[in-house]
Every structure is written in C-alpha cells, then in structure tokens.
C-alpha cells in the first residue's frame, strides 16, 4: 500500500464505574508496524482494542486515524478496521457463507460465492461454508472470525488473544496473517501469552 497510514492513540483512559483500568495510554503506529499489547487478565488489553475499533468509549483521550495526512471520520474508518476477539460473535443461526456474504454486503465489498469459499479455504474452513455456525467448534469459530476480519482487507487489524482455541495449524495461520498485514498496514495484538510477543515490533506492557 502506498498510502501513508497513521494510528494515533493519545492519553486514552478506560474506566468501569469507579475502577480505572487504563490511565493515559499513548502511542503512534504507521504502515508496516506491529504492536503487541501484553498484560495480565484484567489489565485492559481487550478494552484498549475495543476503543481503537470504536466499539467502546474511552473515559478520556482520543484515537485518530489519518491517511495521507487526512483525519478520517469514525464512519470512514470502519472500512479500515478489522477485529478478531473472543467476544466477537457472528450469527449462529446462519451458515459461514451467509455470515460472510452479509458482512460483505453491508461493507460494500463486491465478491462472489467462489471468492468467499476461497477465503474460507484460506482460514481452514474449506468445505464447511454451508454449515450453520451453531454446529462449529470453538476452533472453527475462531477461524471464521479471521475470515470476517480479513473480508474487506483492513488496513488496521486488531487481534485479541489471536491463537486462543487454535491448534498448530491455526497458530501458523495467525503467523501468516500477521506477516501479510505488515505489507498492508498496522497490526495490534493483545495477548498474555509470551510466545506471541515475537510478532511485535513494539511491546506495550499494561500493569494491573
């Protein structure tokens, strides 16, 4: 990608009631960079990713996405963001292909059934596209989360506990996704697994 992409997180604080989870986190990332956010359970890793994706309001601070110097409106930024997380839930009463076709339609991604099948094949769900999500195992559901997140070629990919429920093949899939995302944009990984810190150019450690 030739676009100059900047993600700026400035002085972000997150609170749940009276309990402060994050206090004044700031960093800036640009195309090709990967940040690993490390920390124990409850340190605010997932919340920080949700704030970056616009799924949660911070108590204080701002998240700014700039492309070629132009600050994007949150609605415009939707098309740049991809999110994989344990609390990402897709429609269990629909099949994997129906899920992907729906999200492609609302995102304005033009693709055929063959394209979606190829995407499912890439994340290791080849031949299971017509199965209802309710019949999927936790590992298969996690793979479909990757298909959902990669569907629109996001410039900023956020991965929360990226290898959770994955077998060795799944871990290799994550490695491939992270490597490819370096060419496309920015990756932010939240994890409490020290083995996943190798993915990052930078590590942000959050304390309780």
């Amino acid at each position: 990608m030739s676009d100059d992409l900047h993600l700026t997180v400035y002085d972000v604080a997150i609170e749940y009631g009276a309990r402060r989870v994050l206090a004044g986190v700031s960093f800036e990332l640009r195309t090709g960079e990967t940040l690993v956010v490390a920390g124990a359970n409850g340190s605010g890793k997932s919340s920080l990713l949700r704030v970056i994706c616009g799924l949660q309001r911070p108590a204080r601070g701002t998240v700014t996405i700039r492309v070629n110097g132009t600050v994007l409106h949150p609605t415009e930024a939707l098309h740049l963001l991809g999110w994989v997380a344990p609390d990402l839930h897709l429609y269990r009463e629909l099949t994997a292909l129906e899920n992907l076709a729906f999200f492609a339609a609302v995102r304005g991604v033009r693709c055929t059934r063959a394209d979606l099948e190829a995407l499912l094949d890439e994340v290791g769900l080849g031949g299971r596209g017509d199965d209802l999500l309710a019949t999927y195992s936790s590992g298969m559901t996690q793979r479909l989360r990757y298909a959902y997140a990669l569907l629109h070629r996001p410039r900023i990919l956020t991965l929360d506990e990226p290898t959770v429920t994955f077998d060795a093949r799944g871990v290799a899939l994550v490695e491939q996704v992270v490597a490819r995302q370096r060419e496309r944009g920015i990756t932010i990984i939240a994890t409490n697994d020290p083995r996943e810190e190798r993915f990052g150019d930078y590590i942000l450690r959050l304390g309780l």
Partner: peptide
C-alpha cells in the same frame, strides 16, 4: 493470497 482475490 486468496483474500486479495476475494475482495476484487
């Protein structure tokens, strides 16, 4: 990269 093919 089939993802690149998917999103035409």
């Amino acid at each position: 990269s089939t993802v690149e093919v998917a999103a035409t």
